[in-house]
């Protein structure tokens, strides 16, 4: 029972963190109907920022959270202006974006290797704060609690933004139907650019916790992170931020239970979950939109 309880609690914390990883990708998809295959690489960049804040300036990696937010929203606006208008003109923007962002991911990885070298970087446990934290009688590293809290908080803030601000409501209007939003006079371009930037910033913020939750940061981690994020948001529902939390929790719980009871098969799990979900519930657990051809 002891093991089960621990695995379940760890799965919830880990799952909240994975919601944070996936939610930016989901927002971008919902608003722009494009798949950002470079998502994991932006997470990596955010992680490196946290690493250098600590190792060069001695600051807590948590300072990287607000810095990443500002930096990556700006970067998102820039990338949006450079790439998206032209992408929209192609015959199949969803597929074209998929390939384009894959290329971008390769370019970012190459630049990161040139800039940071190949060594995997990590941070000592003490960098984020000393000791452990007790939850329901089980002891967890402080970094886990911080990552889980960051995940929960980001989802809540995003929810408040989307449902209780005017800009957010406009964003949801674009999500529901781009054409209607254009027709009703919303500045769709600016709303989309902001959503894209927020998507990147959420990835970068998730990167701050990567040294603790993902074992370290290295330039070539992007593809694996992107695949996992995709799994999380597909299990939940594409284009639905609340769905991401469900997806993250299912993923986290399943992974931790597998590690406890069938460890060598654990890494197989996300891929199996993804394929099974797609085949049985093609629109995700909480989705309504059909996506079969």
């Amino acid at each position: 029972m002891f093991l089960l309880e621990y695995a379940v609690l760890a799965g919830i914390l880990y799952g909240l963190y994975f919601s944070l990883i996936g939610i930016g990708l989901n927002l971008t998809f919902g608003v722009l109907k494009i798949v950002n295959l470079a998502h994991g690489d932006f997470l990596m960049l955010g992680g490196f920022l946290a690493y250098f804040l600590y190792s060069a300036l001695g600051l807590s990696p948590l300072w990287a959270v607000p810095i990443n937010l500002v930096l990556f929203v700006a970067l998102g606006g820039l990338l949006y202006a450079l790439l998206i208008p032209r992408l929209r003109q192609s015959r199949d923007p969803e597929m074209a974006s998929f390939i384009l962002f894959f290329g971008l991911s390769q370019a970012i990885e190459a630049l990161a290797i040139l800039a940071f070298g190949n060594n995997q970087r990590s941070l000592p446990a003490a960098a984020i704060g000393p000791g452990t934290i007790s939850l329901f009688g089980q002891v967890f590293p402080l970094s886990w609690a911080a990552a889980g809290a960051a995940g929960l908080l980001s989802v809540l803030l995003l929810y408040l933004y989307l449902y209780h601000t005017r800009l957010g409501q406009a964003t949801r209007a674009v999500m529901a139907s781009r054409e209607e939003a254009v027709a009703s006079g919303l500045s769709v371009g600016r709303i989309s650019a902001l959503a894209f930037g927020i998507g990147l910033a959420l990835a970068a913020i998730a990167g701050v916790f990567a040294p603790y939750l993902l074992g370290g940061i290295s330039p070539n981690m992007g593809v694996a992170v992107t695949t996992t994020s995709f799994t999380v948001i597909v299990i939940g529902a594409l284009g639905n931020p609340v769905g991401t939390v469900v997806g993250g929790l299912i993923y986290g719980l399943a992974l931790m239970l597998m590690e406890t009871y069938a460890s060598s098969w654990a890494t197989l799990l996300p891929y199996l979950l993804l394929v099974i979900t797609l085949l049985i519930w093609p629109s995700g657990l909480l989705g309504r939109r059909l996506r079969s051809a």
Partner: peptide, 20 residues
Amino acid sequence: DNGVSTSTSNYTVLVHDIAA
């Protein structure tokens, strides 16, 4: 005595299982 994938990057739960 258990194997895990080489791509495993987080050992917190595994360490706990071992401690048990």
